[in-house]
Design a protein around this nucleic acid. Structure first.
Lengths: 188, 188
DNA sequence: CAAAATTTATCTACTGATAGATAGATCAGA
DNA sequence: TCTGATCTATCTATCAGTAGATAAATTTTG
């Protein structure tokens, strides 16, 4: 039996997959353990509690998501490009076998989650909308718009993408995600 | 111990509340039983399996939602009015102690739900978007628009509302739902 | 109408499976 | 030999679901 130095990372990765498929209440330490070939006590060794694991999965997901977006200053100069960038970022989540955005599903379940998990979920939306607001302000569309207008567009855009993921998933129809009208949100 | 003839309805109602708070995997027959003051076996008496109960909760919710919308022919004549009607319908869900749309949370969890529950969830989106498409086609905004354009706007609108509910809930900030820009989706 | 049969609604008590979590042993490598 | 990582074994609590009893209400029948 060779040692596997990647156990910790494997747990985190599988936990993300399972949460995005079934939600926080839809997986167990035993699922993780059997999925990567260890015992459930070994999972507890790296992540003492489920809340601890959930919070770290969310943090990891958020960091990766924002890292892929890059610095707001490097965002496309046209608002259409900013939208396209965010769109493709969310679309990757969906195409990778019909998965929800991790924080979308956590937000839906947030009524009964441990505080640490909710806090990380909130951080995802805060950080992503901050990126979007910065990126949109730099575009020519953003010129002459008030802060309130830009913020409203940013939040609406995030909501639109999250909701479209939700519906595409329920309908088992990823194409639905491509047919949404995000450009309408910057039509005025 | 007086008999309670409303047990069946009480179960359905509490099940809806609990699903909207914690999700399908976040409540148990025992939660229902203790919540309404019977034993869990009595819950099984009315709803043999959890899948059965889940599907009936979803069906009941969808019927109530569409009934409140009324016939598409009776929808407001202006597209702005149609949007306002749908908006207020979703807002009620949120204001009634920060709850998600039932089918929104079921859609998020749909990767691991029984087929009967998924089917009812899908029916909610199909029926609601059908209403919205019919209602929008009657408006002056709908004149001259192609079927594809109207359908895209309708689906985008539903997605926007569902996603905004999600975010408002995660942020424990219902006001977020009021600041979204649904009118942008009919700006062109 | 009144007795008998049936149905309805609830209970107690239980099953096998699974949940998250913990204690203590073991084993490999520095 | 000490430390990190994994194991076996177990705990308590809870899960969905079932069996069988029971009391009351209802329906059927003589």
């Amino acid at each position: 039996m060779p040692r596997n130095p990647d156990t910790e990372a494997n747990i985190l990765s599988l936990a993300e997959t399972l949460i995005r498929k079934n939600g926080y209440n839809g997986f167990s330490f035993r699922d993780l353990a059997s999925g990567i070939g260890v015992k459930s006590s070994s999972v507890h060794y790296y992540y003492p509690t489920k809340a601890d694991l959930g919070a770290k999965v969310a943090r990891h997901y958020t960091d990766r998501f924002l890292n892929a977006l890059g610095a707001p200053e490097d965002a496309p100069a046209a608002a259409e490009g900013v939208i396209a960038k965010l769109h493709s970022q969310f679309e990757q989540a969906l195409r990778k076998d019909g998965q929800m955005c991790l924080c979308g599903i956590l937000a839906a379940e947030s009524g009964g989650l441990p505080d640490s998990v909710i806090n990380e979920t909130r951080a995802f939306f805060n950080r992503t909308s901050a990126w979007l607001i910065s990126a949109l302000k730099q575009t020519s569309w953003g010129e002459g718009k008030t802060d309130t207008q830009v913020e409203s567009a940013a939040i609406s855009m995030l909501a639109l993408f999250e909701g479209a993921l939700l519906m595409a998933r329920a309908n088992k129809n990823p194409d639905l995600f491509d047919n949404i009208d995000a450009l309408g949100l910057i039509a005025r």
